[in-house]
């Protein structure tokens, strides 16, 4: 084990006791935090999801359950609709002109597609990490992590404490603690991606969606993110899209295989990779097509 990781593990444990105390004082201010006391995320259930780009049906009658505090990997060939599914979960899909979705995406029993649902609250509860690191170029490291809290107009919180905690949670604290006021874009690619994860974590969502978070990173940075994901699942429900089978094997508790907008198979990762039910899954994971 490399020393930095051990420390980062320790700090996470510290963090959770820390936050338990601080949460107690703030519990009245933010109800969501009260649920954080048991440090449990909440699962997501997708039922009968159809997603369109204009007239094109990109995701067809999709049903899946992402269990709480587990990492679920979405795999499948390019264009199979993985990104679309993920973007439907936090309603980012509808940001694309002409795109729409129907069906039910339930976060702990609450359908985010119901009438009268506030999209911004949905996105606050379901964070997202993108393929390419995208820190805000005009903001410092600190401001980038604080951005989510400021942009959502969160009040009555200790901003600095939240930012430091998020940076520790992603294991970035030691690397950036002396350059918090430097531009976020000045970090390395891997650091930038962890910064973006910190930005997401700082808002304290329930679910974190990751769309190929490592595909722009080198193997060392990728490893760091994978270890981070493993730690984050204690607290969050994680859905990760990946093209990298080994990565899915390393981080995911369960894996779902998609093809042409449909869910082909979802099961424990080891089963999907060693003994899948569907022959198409087998062909894909053994590299016979893709």
């Amino acid at each position: 084990m490399i020393p930095p990781e051990t420390t980062s593990k320790e700090t996470t444990t510290d963090m959770s006791t820390e936050r338990r105390q601080s949460d107690r004082t703030e519990a009245a201010a933010e109800a969501k935090e009260s649920s954080a006391q048991d440090a449990k995320g909440h699962g997501v259930n997708i039922e009968a999801l159809n997603a369109y780009y204009g007239d094109q049906l990109a995701v067809k009658n999709f049903n899946i359950a992402f269990p709480a505090n587990e990492v679920t990997a979405l795999i499948g060939p390019s264009g199979s609709g993985k990104s679309t599914v993920v973007r439907c979960i936090n309603r980012m899909h509808e940001e694309i002109p002409g795109a729409r979705a129907e069906g039910s995406v339930a976060l702990d029993g609450m359908n985010v597609y119901e009438d009268g649902v506030d999209v911004t609250s949905v996105r606050r509860l379901i964070g997202m990490v993108f393929q390419k690191p995208n820190p805000f170029p005009t903001m410092s490291v600190f401001d980038n992590v604080a951005a989510g809290l400021r942009l959502t107009g969160a009040r009555g919180i200790n901003l600095r404490e939240r930012v430091h905690r998020a940076l520790r949670a992603v294991g970035l604290w030691d690397e950036v603690k002396n350059r918090l006021d430097k531009p976020g874009t000045g970090l390395s690619g891997g650091q930038q991606q962890r910064l973006c994860i910190a930005r997401t974590v700082a808002v304290e969502p329930e679910v974190i969606l990751m769309d190929e978070p490592c595909s722009a990173l080198d193997p060392v940075a990728t490893l760091k993110i994978e270890e981070l994901i493993d730690e984050l699942k204690d607290r969050y429900t994680i859905v990760i899209v990946t093209h990298n089978m080994q990565q899915a094997g390393r981080v995911a508790d369960s894996t779902a295989f998609m093809l042409e907008g449909e869910l082909i198979e979802h099961g424990p990762t080891t089963k999907i990779f060693t003994n899948p039910n569907d022959e198409r899954t087998e062909r894909y994971v053994t590299g016979k097509f893709g």
Binding site: N90, M92, E95, T120, S121, V122, R123, R124, L125, G127, M128, F130, K132, N134, F136, P137, A147, G148, L151, T152, G153, C196, R199, T200, V203
Partner: peptide
Amino acid sequence: SLREAALALGAPRWRV
């Protein structure tokens, strides 16, 4: 991607 990042954090459009 910057607009998306901000929106995905739950920011309302005017703040973005």
